[in-house]
Write a protein that binds this DNA or RNA. Structure first.
Length: 472
DNA sequence: ATGTGC
């Protein structure tokens, strides 16, 4: 496979075979995945064969192997040219994303109260593989309201304030959700999980702003040096997972009817303007709203802990997803086109003055939240004008070793000891789960951010460091 | 990511 270095942060894979467009990989030489350990560049080439794909199949600097599409992949298809939507281009954790809250206290004021705060968060934040959630729903009817109302429904029900919604992507609720297209099985899985972290790389962290790179943007976002923050990283739990499973199956069955051939079964897809494509997008919207409500409910739990221990509130800085497919208009070959933009492990980063931004953030661009590896750093970024991949950037550090390999190499107990020795309070649930998230299994988040900025996908606003971590 | 497998 030919890869041409166009500049230190941009690599091109010319179209070959069935590829309709080239592959573009934003990375440094050091971050570029090696074919023998990670087949994600092969996946970038596979995605480039999808009907209707425009411009390029993109990879962000944190790209790694995923189901069908790479994680860290961006692909847009032209709806009016038979463009397809593919559940594998969003991933199993629909609308997985990050929310950042800013406390009214600084690092020094938190001081010795950290341990007690972490104990309360450890006891009240539902997490892990099994059931348990902030919200005990009364039945499927109430879940329907979650699926159509998103974070807005959580706020209406007393779990938040109106201003929270101004600080969520899409106002906390996407249009077009149809609960009747979410299977009974997905309902059953989702019913007892609204307001829960899950497991894997999901977390709730208490963090501090370690460094500010852009004072104007940081101040518009409500952030300043040494401020205490809370970062929540989670998604749509078993409900989103089941929606993905259901629609992969449905599309596998109809692809031949639309005369679509793909090089990998995991790229199952259907035209956006087909019954199956449309149904998936309406179920996707429902799962998206579920994830937004989920993060809103965990916010309410974090606020109760902060109020009790510090007498401090938590203002929502922003909430943004990194696993979505959305209908957007972009100019392609000099003409505005209606596109279905898949972002899987990629975060939208709208430039300053984009019409979808809230008025008070128009000057700065979209806040883009990047969770780092446990015990390292997380970043707040902002969108920039003229970015090359449909206003997208990275979403995290990106794995270099599988969960299995990570757990083999590290002991969870030793990892906790090490984090605690650096002053980071750890409230976990499983030693194995902790080991699977060892920083040694991930790329260097700072190198990923540098490459993202170098490729002009975004700009840095602030770096956050962990003080305490609640893990699923 | 995930009732961590068809």
């Amino acid at each position: 496979m030919e890869i041409i270095e166009e500049n230190p942060y941009r690599f091109r894979m010319p179209a070959h075979g069935a590829m309709r467009v080239p592959g573009i990989v934003f990375a440094s030489r050091k971050l570029l995945p090696m074919a023998q350990e990670d087949r994600s560049l092969e996946q970038v080439a596979n995605v480039a064969t999808l009907p209707g794909i425009v411009v390029a199949s993109y990879a962000m600097p944190d790209v790694h192997w995923g189901y069908g599409f790479p994680i860290g992949g961006v692909a847009a298809t032209d709806i009016d040219a038979g463009g397809v939507v593919s559940p594998g281009g969003v991933g199993f954790d629909i609308s997985c994303g990050v929310r950042l809250l800013a406390a009214g206290v600084g690092r020094a004021e938190l001081g010795s109260r950290l341990a007690g705060l972490m104990d309360t968060l450890g006891h009240t934040v539902p997490r892990g593989m099994h059931r348990g959630s902030v919200w005990q729903l009364t039945g499927p009817g109430q879940l329907e309201r979650v699926l159509t109302g998103g974070a807005g429904y959580a706020v209406e029900s007393g779990h938040g304030v109106a201003r929270d919604l101004d600080r969520c992507e899409d106002g906390g609720r996407v249009e077009g959700a149809d609960p009747s297209l979410v299977s009974r099985r997905a309902f059953e899985r989702g019913l007892g999980q609204v307001g829960s972290l899950g497991s894997g790389n999901h977390f709730l962290e208490v963090q501090a702003v370690e460094e500010v790179y852009d004072d104007t943007a940081a101040s518009a976002f409500g952030l300043h040096r040494d401020q205490v923050c809370v970062m929540i990283h989670c998604g749509s739990r078993g409900l989103g997972h089941q929606v993905c499973t259901d629609y992969v199956r449905s599309m596998e069955q109809v692809m031949s009817r639309y005369d679509i051939q793909v090089p990998d079964r995991q790229l199952a897809c259907a035209p956006v303007e087909s019954p199956e494509g449309g149904d998936y997008l309406r179920a996707l919207a429902a799962a998206t709203n579920y994830a937004r409500a989920n993060r809103q409910l965990l916010t309410a739990t974090a606020r109760r802990a902060f109020e009790a221990h510090l007498g401090s509130g938590l203002d929502l800085v922003y909430d943004v997803s990194h696993n979505l497919a959305t209908i957007e208009t972009h100019e392609v070959d000099g003409r505005p086109r209606r596109l279905c933009v898949h972002r899987k492990g990629a975060t939208r980063a709208l430039p300053p003055h984009h019409p979808d931004l809230p008025a008070d953030l128009a000057g700065t661009g979209q806040p883009t939240l990047i969770p780092g590896t446990m015990g390292t750093a997380s970043y707040v970024l902002a969108g920039v004008a003229g970015s090359p991949a449909f206003h997208s950037t990275c979403h995290g550090a990106g794995r270099t070793r599988s969960r299995h390999a990570a757990a083999r190499g590290v002991s969870g107990r030793a990892l906790r000891e090490e984090l605690e020795s650096h002053g980071i309070a750890v409230r976990g649930t499983s030693w194995k789960g902790l080991a699977e998230e060892a920083p040694s299994a991930y790329k260097d988040i700072t190198a990923v951010i540098e490459a993202s900025e170098g490729a002009r996908l975004c700009r840095k606003v602030a770096r956050l460091v962990p003080l305490g971590v609640v893990k699923g």
